[in-house]
């Protein structure tokens, strides 16, 4: 089950914590990847670690023209097809609403939501022709619950969920599913920097009693990418140790 042999995938933010775990999980199931990110050195190092015949595509997701060209480059690099798009890249610019600058709002919406739209629009065309496709976007628990200081981030992640539901309805008849994975607290450089008191406060809200790992997200993406998940569309799979049951 969940074999992805012969399938190709574009993963954005592929050298980051969750992105690299997603890429590893997809590759382990046999998919060939186009790894996209903004830092060429990090991508190269990650691709070398991953081994296999995966490609690297450097792209600045805040540049609309670059984003519009990315799927075409991926299709070319992957031998003429794209089966899976994983919109994983995201940024935060946290601030209280009264202090939030216009740029803090627009940068987050542009990278997290608008780039996901542009990539999905570009990928839908070859996927429609192929009568098969998987568009999977990494959203966040805060896109559903909200979080103080993250009005921009939560809006972008909620936007991805609404967009995915609409695309799911538009594209279902063509064999294309569109879903989201919503991580809760995942172990990362950011959570490693928290002190014990901060970690303790977070853990009291997580019934599972632990932070999640990148692999937990990778496994959820593999499932949604698989042929076996073909009847699942417009859904958000929450991977959060029970911290929000929605």
């Amino acid at each position: 089950m969940f074999d992805l042999t012969g399938m190709t995938a574009l993963v954005t933010g592929a050298s980051g914590g969750i992105g690299s775990a997603i890429a590893k999980a997809l590759a382990a199931q046999g998919a060939t990847l186009a790894l996209s990110g903004s830092n060429e050195e990090k991508l190269k190092a990650f691709a070398a670690e991953l081994g296999g015949d995966h490609k690297i595509l450097v792209c600045n997701l805040s540049d609309p023209a670059a984003v519009d060209g990315l799927v075409g480059q991926a299709v070319e690099a992957l031998g003429g097809k794209i089966d899976i798009l994983v919109n994983n890249a995201g940024i935060t610019r946290d601030n209280l609403i009264l202090r939030m600058k216009d740029e803090e709002w627009s940068d987050v919406i542009s990278v997290n939501l608008e780039a996901a739209f542009r990539l999905a629009r570009a990928a839908a065309k070859p996927m429609m022709k192929a009568r098969f496709g998987r568009i999977i976007s990494i959203t966040s628990v805060v896109g559903v619950t909200g979080n103080p200081g993250q009005a921009n981030y939560a809006a972008s992640k909620a936007g991805i969920i609404g967009m995915s539901k609409s695309l799911g309805q538009e594209l279902a008849s063509r064999g294309i599913t569109v879903n989201c994975v919503a991580p809760g607290f995942i172990r990362s450089a950011m959570t490693d920097a928290l002190n014990d008191a901060q970690k303790g406060a977070i853990l009291t809200k997580i019934p599972a009693g632990d932070l999640g790992a990148g692999e937990d997200i990778g496994a959820a993406v593999v499932y949604l990418a698989s042929k076996e998940a073909g009847y699942v569309t417009g859904q958000t799979l929450h991977v959060n140790g029970g911290m929000a049951m929605i």
Binding site: K125, M128, K129, E170, R174
Partner: peptide, 9 residues
């Protein structure tokens, strides 16, 4: 409407 888009393509 999706058929029309595909026909145009």
């Amino acid at each position: 409407s999706l058929d029309i888009v595909e026909l145009v393509m």
